[in-house]
Structure formats: structure tokens, C-alpha cells
Design a protein around this nucleic acid. Sequence first.
RNA 1: UCCCCGAUAGCUCAAUGGUAGAGCGAGCGGCUGUUAACCGCUAGGUUCCAGGUUCGAGUCCUGGUCGGGGAGCCA
Length: 476
Amino acid sequence: MMTWMKVSEAFGAQPGTRLTIKGWVRTTRESKAEGGLCFVGVSDGTCFDPIQVIARGGGDGALANFDAVKHLTTGCSVEVDGTLVASPAKGQAVEIAADAVRVIGTVENPDTYPVSNKRHTFEYLREVAHLRVRTNTFGAVARLRHCLSMAIHEFFDKRGFYYVHTPIVTGSDCEGAGQMFRVSTLDMANPPRGADGKVDFGQDFYGKESHLTVSGQLNVETHCCALSRVYTFGPTFRAENSNTSRHLSEFWMIEPEVAFCDLMGDSVLAEDFIKHLIDAALTRRGDDMKFFDERIEKGLIERLRHVLETPFRRLPYTEAVAILEKSGKTFEYPVKWGTDLQSEHERYLTEEHFKQPVILMNYPKQIKAFYMRLNDTGTDNAPGQTVAAMDVLVPKIGEIIGGSQREERLDVLDSRIVEMGLNPKDYWWYRDLRRYGTVPHAGFGLGFERAMMFLTGMQNIRDVIPFPRAPRQCDF
RNA sequence: UCCCCGAUAGCUCAAUGGUAGAGCGAGCGGCUGUUAACCGCUAGGUUCCAGGUUCGAGUCCUGGUCGGGGAGCCA
């Protein structure tokens, strides 16, 4: 009786096992020896390596359709019945001696098959995103992405966090994180207009303007202030015209929120979280990580082990500015207390000065969001007022996490809202959390794709998400 | 959005303003328990698009489209 096994299972089975595997041809090689041999590498995506299938054209195990098997090319789908045997040749420990190879789907023109068995650039493969997952690299990326997704839920579940499904469509355009995509069912060519000539969104689907969310944070805070420990993990949309290797207009974000927690507790959670992801990747996807280490970024595993074993460096923003001023480096943009650090400054700190992840804390209030908790005057001997915000910087990627302790004092929150030129009325339900049993709480946001880049060594964010969306890029 | 670079065979890239080339991939044959295989032969082109300069444009000029790197915004 043949057992249909995943290729990953077949590699672990005993020689002599009779089995069936089903998958796609990666490579074929032919030999005239022993009455005709055909070596077919078959992958079903369950592990990094394809398994080698031996088809014979003569002798005892001759296949009736050997001629068809000889004409298999990369991309064909097959079902193989056979026996797992120890391989007599180098290159693989085991292989499958085939009794039958059923050709399920052929490739209609091998000459133009987009992901033929050769090296392709990532730029090219982006144009064939529906097929690129059949390659070594994108198969590994897909498996690791799944592995990390599961590890994220597991991390929070084990710590008593509840997974909250925050909305994708939002009626508030006050989430405060940049340009938003409009959601509307109005006739764009001929929208209803009010007496003032402006578009009347009162007639739109929700009776008001609505957009895709840019953050689940404000919503998740409501559940934090009832369930204590919560997190979201979902898609996020930013309509910024960002054309970089680190930005997407649709990306996935993990946002935990913890009640009765301050900024230091928040930073400990962030550090534990990143380390858990590294551990999960290394222990559960060793095959894929080995590939990333050898072919994508030399020294990746060593770099991640170092991060895993070293405590993150915590550093007040004010001290970071002092370090940068004393560094002797000439930066394109000058360092000045009260302004945001530039990419070059962050890179210097995490890649050159400390050579490890750095958590910068307590930023000047004028460069951070209204909901971040105002620190006492004199915190860190800063020359101005600061808020309890943190950014986690990692080598190669830069900012991977942004978080803060939230302002739980209603009067302070209100004055900050007004100070930023916002209207407290727009935040009525957010303010209610401070009116009814307010508590100190804190949280952060981690860009999932940036974590993927950090863990794989992939250099373009469009290559760590199955179907990237970016300005002028919405194919597939 | 700003700065820089690029677009030629299925893919990666050559080609002084003067007949369009190679490697890989593909097809056929040879050799081999093969595995980045190797050897031979063959096929494969609207040189991104629209204008312009020129006797002549892949090459020079203008505009556009798309892609890459960097910056800003951020996760």
C-alpha cells in the first residue's frame, strides 16, 4: 500500500518505505547508462530540498512512459510511486526509485517558462509573482513567513494576551499616521455635492468619510483597558508615496498593548518578542535559514545568534544625540536635540557604535504623536520636554519597532490634542478610556515585513510579502 | 515627491553613430549514477513607447512609461 507523503516526511522515512509523492519538477538530468536513467528533482514546497526521483528506461524497474518522463521540464507536475532507497551517489542521502511517474500537468512551452531552472533576479521574479514561490528563495520566504506568523500568536498566547480583530475600515481619519486610502461607494465621476459644492459624504456608504486603517492601536487600546493584555496582527494601509525598499502601501503589523505597564515594561516585551522570533526561525526552519545564510546574507545566522544572546542596549534619546555629536562623524544632516534622527544617525548607532539592537527611549515631545505619555520635566536631563516613546533599531533594517507608554491622564491628553491642532471631539471614545477607570498602559507596533527582512537578510521588502502593493504596483 | 542609474533573445548582459552578439535557459544529438554536469548542432530580436537630429540611431536629443539604488515619510 502506497502512502502519500509530503517530501519533508519522505526525507525522514526509513529506506525501503513504499510511498507516493506529489509535486512539481525542479530539475531533470538524463543518462544513457543502465538502459536509460532519468533523475528528476521534485518539490512539493514542504521543505527546502527537492527529493530526487530515479526513473529507469530499461531493466527491472523500466517505466512504460519513460519517454514522457525524459521530456519532463522544470515546472511540470507529477505523482510518483516508488521506494525510498539510500542513494548510491553523492548529493543526497536518500532518493526514490520510481515504479510509476504520472505526468499530471506539462509546461506548454519550456522555452518561455518564466521560472526556468536558472538564476533569476528578484526584480524579474516580482513580475511573475504568481510563479516565483516555486523558486528556492521565495519558497523559503513563504515557509518562514508562515513559521513566524504562528510563532507570533504562540508568543502572545503563552503570555496571556488575547488576539483582537481590529477593523480594516475606519471612520476616523485621526489615527495620526499619515495618508490614508479612501473607502467609498460614491460615483467618482459624479459624486453628490452639498450646498457648499463639496462632496457630500453623508450620502456615502457609512454616512461619513471612511478609510482603510493605518493602525489598529487606538482600537486595541479599548480592549487593553478591559482584557489587560491584547494584540492585533493584521493588514495596515498607508497611502504615502514611498518608493523605497523598506515601504509597502499594504503591510502587516503586530501591535500588542498592555495595561498597568510602563515604557520599560514595554521595551522588555519588545526585546523578548524579537528574540522569540529569532529562536523560532532558527529552531523550526533550519533548512530555509541555512539557505538564507549561505545565499542571501553571509553570516546571517551568526548575526541573529548574536542578537539572541546579547541584551538590547537601552539608551535615552538625549544620550544618543550626545553620542552622535561626539562621534566625530560628519553626517549629511546635522544632529540636533529636538529633531528626529535620520536614517544615517540610526544606522551609525546600531551598526557602528553599538553593533547590536538599540532601544532609543524618551523622545522630544514635538516629534512624537499626541497619545504618547508626557514625561516629568528633567527626565534624562533632557533640555526639553520628552514623551515615553521608544524606537527599536536593528542593524541593516533600521527602525523595526515603534512604541510608547500611552497618556492615561485626561487633562494632559486633552492639552496635547489641542497643542497638536487636533479636535478632542474626534477622539471622544478614546478619551472615554481616560474618563472611566483609566490605567497606565503601553504598547508597540512591529512591521511584520521588516521583521521578515531582518530574519532572512532579504534586502527588498517587496520580496518578503507574497503580493506586494506599493505606488503603481498592484498586480496579481 | 526629490537626486542618481538603467531598459537589447525566455533570463543575465555585450555591441566607437555604419550588417544584432555571448553566456545561461530551450529543442535535437553525443557522453555520463547524474546533481551549477560536460561536448556538438539548431532555433530564438518591433533593441520599452512617442517624437526629433542624421545619408544612416540599440547608440545622440526631447517627452513619457516601467524598474533599481539613495533620501524624505514611517513600520
